[in-house]
Design a protein around this nucleic acid. Structure first.
Lengths: 167, 167
DNA sequence: ATAATCTTTCAATATTTTTTGAAAGTTCGG
DNA sequence: CCGAACTTTCAAAAAATATTGAAAGATTAT
């Protein structure tokens, strides 16, 4: 396999993965492209490599920056903006996890709390509903907190050791 | 808030969450409905509650069963199939994680391995590409293995203690 | 202030995904 | 084997989502 072919395959695969995770294809592809680019790319570069429109490139680069996983860079003497991807993979994972938590899990928790707060005593059915949704609330809350825990762990001595033991 | 309103809100929210995670809305809604139903529901029941067509109900119930998070039940004397959701939340999380791993992560790993195996010596660029994608491969592999680790941990004494310490 | 260069916005269009519903398929009692 | 009860399939339609491209908006050099 040639470099070009490999690069392309990687970008396509990352794009497909993205859509399965609720991220749009182009966004994931731009991200992939930036990941394997050693130097910052301009919007023009991105458009050419992926054969997409200016508007599309602009919007998705913006979205990636909102996620905090792509950065703008300025080159002296150049008027264009250039872009690079977060390449520290731990950092990348943490940022994605935090952003998803903020955008999706937190709002869901709010609703879960709300619906599990109806009066459980009005009927057997209501009681069971409250019971079930409360459990769900606790579970999602616990899962959500894990994200922070993992970040903490990485920063302390015992934690790092533990991670090693866990292979 | 009344039970009906709460139930509906829960189903809608779960559905919206689902689509952000690459699961279709109806599938997530059916799942939500079954989660808060104390007794098994027939396809007819599901169609009525969610106001969806027979085909839609059939396909999505099938998909949920493929994920292993909804089960068919038979009632003696009844010809219809009835459905219940996995209600053990730990079990639910494990099943979802395993299925996603199988469907998405494993295939992605395969591609990553492939593209990171091109000859690194042909050019500087090729070398950097291989370096970057190899790192990615290792990272994704490690993350994927964590799923299994978490399952193991829950099953052993030290692990459970650890989980408690982690709050 | 004007022009040049570059970016963003957004209504229109294209693409992808989901849903429908009717026909075909299955299963089972008699 | 037939017919009733139920489920699955899948082509067509609808809905949701992504993409384009041209105009408007910025920003900087002259």
């Amino acid at each position: 396999m040639q470099l070009d072919e490999a690069k392309n395959k990687f970008i396509q695969t990352w794009g497909a993965l993205g859509s399965q995770w609720g991220i749009n294809k182009t966004m994931a592809q731009i991200h992939a492209l930036l990941i394997v680019s050693n130097n910052p790319l301009s919007m023009e570069d991105v458009m050419e490599e992926l054969i997409i429109s200016r508007g599309n490139a602009s919007m998705n680069l913006r979205a990636l920056m909102d996620w905090g996983i792509v950065y703008k860079e300025y080159k002296t003497g150049e008027r264009k903006d250039f872009f690079t991807a977060e390449k520290d993979l731990d950092e990348l994972a943490v940022k994605i996890a935090k952003e998803r938590s903020r955008r999706e899990i937190k709002p869901a928790l709010k609703i879960l709390k709300e619906v599990s707060s109806i009066d459980a005593k009005t009927s057997l059915e209501a009681g069971q509903f409250v019971n079930q949704t409360k459990k769900l609330y606790d579970f999602v809350l616990k899962a959500d907190n894990m994200i922070d825990k993992v970040t903490e762990i990485k920063d302390n001595w015992v934690g790092r050791l533990l991670m090693k033991v866990m292979k």
